[in-house]
């Protein structure tokens, strides 16, 4: 029997592109879910540090400056 190879090729194309796209679509969905879970339950400590530490630094500096000013004021008195 004569096999129509072009038809075979088209079938493989359909199956192949279908698999590639389903794989990637599932991957995208899983990526989104995974990101949500990670951000909800395991927020990165670095982020927190980055947000808080400069503020703390600022506070510390302010406190130091105020203390210095008070000390200076007292000494001058």
């Amino acid at each position: 029997m004569e096999v129509n190879y072009i038809f075979e090729g088209l079938k493989i194309m359909l199956l192949g592109m279908g698999t590639v796209f389903s794989f990637l679509v599932i991957m995208i969905v899983m990526m989104n879910i995974m990101s949500k879970i990670v951000h909800r339950f395991f927020p990165e400590p670095n982020d927190v540090d980055n947000n808080t530490s400069p503020a703390m630094d600022n506070n510390a500096k302010k406190v130091a400056a105020i203390t210095a000013a008070i000390m200076h004021h007292r000494q001058v008195k």
């Binding site: 090729g9 194309m13 192949g16 592109m17 590639v20 990637l24 679509v25 995208i28 990526m31 990101s35």
Partner: peptide, 18 residues
């Protein structure tokens, strides 16, 4: 993540050439 679809579309080159 959705840019992954672009990587999928480019595989059409493989199957089209087949």
């Amino acid at each position: 993540p959705k840019t992954a679809l672009l990587g999928g579309a480019a595989q059409f080159g493989i199957f089209g050439t087949l």
